[in-house]
Amino acid sequence: MLDFLQQEIPLPNWIDSGVNWLTEHWSGLFSILQTVGEAVMNFTTNTLSAVPPLLMMVLLTVAAFFVFNRKLGFAFFTLIGLLFIYNQGMWADLMNTVTLVIISSLVAIVIGVPLGILMSKSETIQNIVKPILDFMQTMPGFVYLIPAVAFFGIGMVPGVFASVIFSLPPTVRMTNLGIRSISTELVETSDSFGDTAWQRLFKLDLPMAKENIFLRIVPDGLLVTRHLSSHQPAH
């Protein structure tokens, strides 16, 4: 027992060799991801930047007006905020950030929502996935940049990687929770009409959990971006 306590487990060495193994043997995959990712991000940023800033401001303001139930206040602050950013000469940075948020949110949804659905349907999967999610969330976001940089080098892609890892747990959790919190009666109603598993998913589960899922993903994307922007390697 004491032996065990005194003898240090060579965990750092294991991790080192693990990371080395991954970078060596999977470098092909990583570089493909890196190249494709970079291309997609650049394309998105360029597209966004191609829109004249003033037009973009108007579009976003109008969008804000409608998204927030036609309240003038939100639209007004959106406009003021955007004008201020432009005034400070940070428009290009803003477009970069928006790209990061969009891409990482998309990836988080593509991976997280199906995982959340699986988790909501099976106790076993929930019992396995939940502690992993807990572990992922206890780490500060920038920690994920270290392996990301090791795998992908420096650039936007490791940023997305870290963002995705950071925003994945809430996405999975909210999907799982959203589906599990649908009242028993509604589930019974749907079942009593003879639904199939897919019908249940698309006609009841997803429509009901939709708000739960999307209300969290975008704020989390933003949160992680803010978190990362102060640590992100210069590019």
Binding site: S183, E185, L186, E188, T189, D191, S192, F193, G194, D195, T196, L204, P207, M208
Partner: peptide, 23 residues
């Protein structure tokens, strides 16, 4: 078979109505 029975033979009405709020 059970699904067919539920679809065509037996339907249920619930205490709290069981209406889908988004529909």
């Amino acid at each position: 078979e059970l699904r067919q029975v539920r679809r065509t033979k037996v339907n249920m009405v619930f205490q709290n109505f069981g209406l889908f709020p988004k529909r």
